[in-house]
Design a protein around this nucleic acid. Sequence first.
DNA 1: ATAATACGAAACGGGGCCGTTGCGTATCGG
DNA 2: CCGATACGCAACGGCCCCGTTTCGTATTAT
Lengths: 209, 209
Amino acid sequence: MATTDENRPARPAGRPRSAKAEKAIIEATLDLISESSGISDLSIEAVAARAGVGKTTIYRRWSNKEDLVVDALAVLKAPLPPVSGRSVREDLITYLEVMRREAGDARSRCVMNIVMNEGDRHSRMVERIRQATVRPRQEALEALLRRGVETGELRADLDLPIAMAMVVGTVMWYAKSAGFGEAGADAGSLPETLAERLADHLLSGLTPR
Amino acid sequence: MATTDENRPARPAGRPRSAKAEKAIIEATLDLISESSGISDLSIEAVAARAGVGKTTIYRRWSNKEDLVVDALAVLKAPLPPVSGRSVREDLITYLEVMRREAGDARSRCVMNIVMNEGDRHSRMVERIRQATVRPRQEALEALLRRGVETGELRADLDLPIAMAMVVGTVMWYAKSAGFGEAGADAGSLPETLAERLADHLLSGLTPR
DNA sequence: ATAATACGAAACGGGGCCGTTGCGTATCGG
DNA sequence: CCGATACGCAACGGCCCCGTTTCGTATTAT
């Protein structure tokens, strides 16, 4: 009978990698990505400096910038909350509320920026991010809208792509516009009641009922 | 009586600057900006190469990258078409049609990308672009919506910021989503009837009437 | 203690782009 | 023709970042 490590992976003798350093690197990467525009602007040296870490420590863990970015963004993948299913309106508000909250966070916002703007330059990476982050949300919203059409809560001739664009686009654009006023200022979070008011306008439309 | 140049600005003797070169530089700049993400990626050397021009020729006209970008983007400022004023629906479709067409053009799209993503890094330049390009459209749309509320064509309790976000955000997001399917492929232009269908969903909402 | 590994710091050669300068040529006015 | 200016081209020194290597030190298992 050996030590307590009997049949565990057998740590490979030597100083173990610092979990703290890894955390600091990921954090620094997220900060710098959200401050920068585009991942081309992101430099490993800047990450190392911000994280208080040697470049060696980064290259020991990730072989290139792309891998680092993917791992860093993976941290942000907050799972979608479950929906009650009681009504389309209620579930829509739930999703809108998630988007409202995320739109107020620079780190979450940069995921969309990357997916939207860097599809050409880093198609493999963006595709990975899309599959992990965007796709599930897209499908959840689509399912909600389809259900609404079936139950009659939504109009029978609903144009699904348009409806999806209305929901997501409106939130995103509202968040962007809110940041326009004060240049650079982050505009922080959006009004508490935004999700509900958005749902109201989206469902009822702009004309009087 | 002197020459025919009597009281004209008196051309400053010497070879005049080539209008063709200037045109080529602007074109190359627009191309490269729309291919690149962020103006940090844009390099003067690349512009010169693409335009078939010496760097000297660029620096002789613009003292820095920012000035060049502003001048280049100014070319895209297609003026807004006049609206008939017959109905809010009709005018809304007119504006949506403009946006649809522009959303299919990479060069026009990059203006919005820049305004949205680079506000922090190049606030002075972005503000100039916003004033020249975004602001007038914003005001035109706002005027249209206000008029609609007054005439009763739009709901009296319309939330203006939300309504604006709905109109613009939906088009933008739809265009983006359309480009998602095929990675890198430009998705070209959007369906002919899009503007009308968008107007219908925006005005009537997602629920049955 | 010793071997193995990780750490931060510093330096390396290489590449890209900066903004400038010099060169030979082309195109204008006088 | 002559002076002036613009042109394309190539080269410059400088900066930043790349990805790698070397160094001295720290932390672990044996």
